[in-house]
Design a binder for these strands. Structure first.
Length: 564
DNA sequence: TGTCACGGTGAGTCCACTGA
DNA sequence: TCAGTGGACTCACCGTGACA
């Protein structure tokens, strides 16, 4: 595509393709630089305004990839004279860029009182409702202790009096019924106002955001960390691998499946390189192998239904499912006294499927199923001593269950996943998408800023999410995980090898083992007969008990203002 | 039951690099 | 040139498990 030949209106529908974004930036910058040049050679404001007016048709269209106008750019570099003359020349004053910032909020962030006062006096909107997805002008002014706080408050008060007066003549009908949670009502913008910003990010983000929100509830109280499903899936995989590691997983991936890239370190560094995919694939292959071994042992056992039982079930129901399932459960119950059997069955029946459930819920955009997995995570994290993961997941649960149920309900409605192409089963976790398609543009947008100013400027605006969704609507943008083509044999061979190993080790044969024995891996040597750490045995039950004891202190630590 | 080793966490520090 | 960033590293603290 020859983007240079496209007009502004032709370019915008293609927003998101890198070269088009570059072209938008290039054109906007060129126009802005021209205007600065004009300003530098025009000493007299009146002349400058006349010359700017002559170029109005040109600059009025200019929006870069973040939807910034020349007025935003003038405010950004603190060019007060150009900003004033642009306004006099007819530049629209209340245009919001992709993250909801106006020239006024940028000037306030820059502590440029002269520009801020001028913009307010020229009609810049100061009311909070206009900045529903970002920090309002008054909050910014208070934060920076700008001299114009008083001026702003007076202005807001004056406008409010006018609005109140006008509203007497146009009374709004407000029903007296309690809040109705139906979709239409929740979707209605007025019921949300500026209730909550869910800042999607990683561990560091959680700590930072909740720290800011607790320290300055008046300003940052509307922010809460939204731990992403992509990250949490990594934590869950790590947890499951560690629970199953000593009892065989580490040994099997190293010596049976022979996957050198999967080990305790790869799970620790789960977001590096291709570790995420390798780890998860190994975990699933391990589970499949164990499942095959388990089924074969069941088949050999006395619990396996007889031919006549199978035939009778087939006659009644048209299939063998009922009798197979009930006998399978009986077989598992009868062998629960064997520590090894119990340990491996827990992994196959409970823990690894949790990760699969999570993955599929994300891919199919099932928000309720995702939340159900979240509810089961903290006890596992508590049990393996990952207090940071535990706190993160608890914060998430408290937020969606009690603190911000309405806002989180909104999230459920959008299935808390991103579906760019509309392909069934291909959704992305919000943070999975954020990492690749938001963090980078955010850094680009706010380069040269401090962490605090980035947080203030961006406020993780939902406007930006919507903007970016449009920006990356192209097919190539969807290709997030550039996985290498498999050059190793298909997983089935590995699964069969795992099954063979599990059968040889008699993991699913009730032999009354009192403990689960450790398997050697890596550099670790065993003295012989060493038992798996008790942390990994009955992890869920123990974790649940631990969590109950820790929960109150967690609430006081992470939600001090709510617990007062 | 007390002691010790170990591992995880989080605060703090250092330093190379970047961009204004 | 200098302020700010972010990764690598250190260290104190704490909880857990092994062992005497």
């Amino acid at each position: 595509m020859q983007v240079e030949r496209l007009s502004w209106s032709e370019l915008v529908p293609h927003i998101g393709i890198e070269e088009v974004n570059d072209e938008l930036d290039k054109r906007t910058t060129r126009i802005f630089d021209d205007l600065r040049q004009v300003a530098s050679v025009c000493n007299e404001d009146g002349t400058l305004i006349v010359r700017l007016k002559a170029r109005k048709n040109e600059f009025i269209l200019a929006r870069d990839q973040y939807l910034r106008t020349v007025l935003h750019l003038a405010a950004g570099i603190g060019h007060t004279r150009l900003l004033k003359c642009l306004v006099h020349a007819g530049a629209p004053i209340n245009v919001r860029d992709g993250i909801g910032q106006t020239a006024l909020t940028i000037s306030l962030h820059k502590n440029n009182d002269a520009a801020s006062v001028f913009l307010i006096e020229s009609g810049a909107c100061v009311q909070e409702y206009y900045y529903e997805n970002t920090v309002s002008p008054l909050a910014i002014a208070k934060l920076h202790k700008n001299d114009i706080v008083e001026f702003l408050e007076k202005r807001i008060g004056d406008e409010k009096r006018v609005l109140d007066h006008v509203s007497k003549f146009f009374p709004k009908k407000i029903s007296g019924s309690p809040v109705d949670m139906n979709v239409d009502h929740v979707n209605h913008k007025e019921n949300f106002s500026r209730a909550l910003n869910i800042n999607i990010g990683d561990q560091k983000n959680t700590v930072t955001v909740i720290g800011c929100a607790n320290a300055c509830p008046d300003i940052y109280g509307c922010h809460t960390p939204g731990t992403g499903d992509f990250h949490n899936r990594g934590y869950l995989n790590e947890t499951v691998a560690r629970i199953g590691g000593q009892g065989g997983f580490w040994h099997v991936v190293e010596n049976v499946m022979k996957r050198p890239t999967v080990n305790p370190t790869s799970f620790k560094q789960k977001f590096k390189d291709n570790n995420y995919n390798n780890n998860e694939e190994a975990l699933y292959d391990y589970e499949d192998g164990l499942s095959i071994a388990m089924i074969k042992e069941f088949e050999k056992s006395s619990f396996f239904p007889s031919k006549s039982d199978l035939a009778s079930c087939l006659l009644k129901t048209g299939n063998h499912n009922n009798v197979l399932l009930s006998k399978f459960k009986e077989w598992q119950e009868s062998s629960k006294g064997d520590a090894i059997f119990n340990y491996q069955v827990n992994l196959v029946n409970d823990l690894i499927p949790l990760s699969r459930w999570y993955k599929e819920s994300i891919r199919n955009g099932n928000g309720h199923a995702i939340e159900a997995v979240w509810m089961l995570c903290p006890e596992l994290y508590a049990q393996i001593g990952k207090t940071n993961y535990r706190d993160e997941s608890l914060i998430h649960i408290v937020n969606f269950a009690t603190k911000w149920p309405l806002a989180y309900r909104k999230l459920f409605q959008r299935n808390r996943t991103v579906n760019i192409e509309g392909i069934q089963g291909k959704q992305l976790a919000d943070d999975e998408w954020v990492e690749d398609h938001l963090v980078y543009p955010v850094k680009k947008y706010a380069k040269g800023q401090t962490s605090f100013s980035v947080l203030e400027m961006m406020s993780c605006s939902s406007n930006l999410l919507e903007l970016d969704r449009k920006m990356y609507k192209s097919r190539e943008a969807f290709n997030i995980h550039r996985t290498r083509r498999h050059c190793t044999p298909p997983s089935l061979y590995d699964q069969l090898k795992v099954a063979q190993f599990a059968s040889k080790e008699e993991w699913f044969v009730d032999k009354g083992h009192p403990v689960v024995y450790k398997y050697a891996w890596g550099e670790n040597t065993l003295k012989g007969g060493e038992a798996v750490s008790s942390r990994s045995i009955d992890a869920r039950t123990k974790g649940k008990e631990k969590l109950q004891l820790e929960f109150l202190s967690f609430l006081h630590r992470k939600f001090p203002n709510e617990m007062k």
